[in-house]
Amino acid sequence: MPSQTQKTNIANAIQSIRNAQNLLQPLINAAPTVSIAIKLTNEYNSLDTCLSQLLHAKNSADDGVFSSAAGVLKSQAGGLQMDEKAIKAIISDVAIADQVVGHIGEAIRYIAMC
C-alpha cells in the first residue's frame, strides 16, 4: 500500500494533471480547425487516463496492487513526455504551451517519486 509520502506525491500529481487540463480546455473550445480540436482532445484524454491511474494507485490497499499501479504510472511517464512535445507542437501560443508543459513536467516529477 502507498506510504504517506507516496500518497502526497500522488495527490500533487493529480492536481498538476488537473491544472494542465484546465489550461487545455479553453484551447479545445477555441480550436480553429477540427484537426487541431481532435489533437488537443486526444491530449486531454491522455491526461485523463493518467489521472485515472493515479486515482487507482492512491486507492490501493494492497502492496502488490500499489506497486503494480505505481509501476504502470512510471512506465507511462515517457508517454507524458511525448504529450509535452505534442502539446508544444499543437499550441501556437508559446506562453500557454509552456504553462501546460510545466504542469505536466510537475506531474512527471511527482510520479517519479511514487
Binding site: 487540463q21 480540436a37 481532435i38 485515472s52
Partner: peptide
C-alpha cells in the same frame, strides 16, 4: 480528502466526455 481527489477525477471525466461530444457536433 479522498472525496476531493475523486471529485477531481469526476470533473476530468465530465469535461473529457463533453469534449468528445462537442467535437462530434462540430463535425
Amino acid at each position: 480528502a479522498e472525496n476531493i481527489d475523486d471529485g477531481q477525477g469526476l470533473k476530468s471525466k465530465e469535461t473529457a466526455l463533453t469534449n468528445d461530444f462537442a467535437l462530434a457536433v462540430r463535425v
